[in-house]
C-alpha cells in the first residue's frame, strides 16, 4: 500500500492539473473555499480517470519485487506481529523459482498465476461496475 502512494499521488495531481483553470475559477467565484472546490467539484468530474490511475498503480505494486526485499524482508513462516518480516507473493515467487526443486518451481508458477488473476479480476470488476454506473447515468439522462 505504501509503495502505491507516490504513484497515486502523482497520477491524481497530473489529472487535477488537466482540469481547465476556468472550471476552478468558476467554483471559487461561487464563494466556495478552495478545498471544497477540489473535493466536491473537480474530483467528481474526473472520477473515472482517478479509478484508472488507482487500477494501474495496484497492478504495478502487485508485481513489485525488489523494493519488498528491503522493506518487508521476506519470511517463509507464519508471523506473530506486524513488525516481523512478512511474506510477500512476488518475493516468494522469486525465491521459489531459483530454488532448483521442481515442486517449488511449480509453486512459483502457480504464485505468478495467482498474481495475474488477482490483477485481472480487480480490473475486470472495476470495469464492469464502471460500465453499469455509466449505464445507470445514461438511463437517468433520458428518463
Amino acid at each position: 500500500m505504501l509503495i502505491m502512494l507516490p504513484v497515486v499521488a502523482r497520477g491524481t495531481e497530473e489529472i487535477l492539473k488537466m482540469v481547465p483553470n476556468h472550471i476552478r475559477e468558476a467554483g471559487l467565484a461561487l464563494g466556495i473555499p478552495r478545498w471544497k472546490v477540489i473535493l466536491y467539484i473537480l474530483i467528481p468530474g474526473v472520477a473515472s480517470m482517478l479509478v484508472t490511475v488507482l487500477m494501474l498503480s495496484i497492478a504495478r505494486i502487485a508485481g513489485e519485487t525488489a523494493p519488498l526485499l528491503f522493506t518487508s524482508l521476506g519470511n517463509q513462516y507464519h508471523i506473530r506481529n506486524l513488525n516481523e518480516p512478512i511474506a510477500t507473493l512476488p518475493v516468494q515467487i522469486y525465491e521459489f523459482s531459483k530454488s532448483g526443486f521442481e515442486q517449488m518451481e511449480n509453486q512459483a508458477w502457480a504464485g505468478a498465476m495467482v498474481l495475474v488473476l488477482f490483477i485481472f479480476f480487480i480490473n475486470f470488476f472495476t470495469r464492469i461496475s464502471l460500465f453499469f454506473y455509466k449505464k445507470d447515468r445514461v438511463k437517468k439522462k433520458f428518463k
Binding site: 481547465p20 476556468h22 472550471i23 475559477e25 468558476a26 467554483g27 471559487l28 467565484a29 461561487l30 464563494g31 466556495i32 473555499p33 467539484i41 467528481p44 468530474g45 474526473v46 472520477a47
Partner: peptide, 21 residues
C-alpha cells in the same frame, strides 16, 4: 474573500458548467 464572492457573483466569457455534475 470567500464571503465577498458570495455577495458578488461572476459569469465568465466562456460558458463553464462543472463537468460531471
Amino acid at each position: 474573500p470567500v464571503l465577498v464572492r458570495r455577495k458578488v457573483g461572476m459569469v465568465f466569457q466562456k460558458p463553464n458548467p462543472f463537468p460531471g455534475l
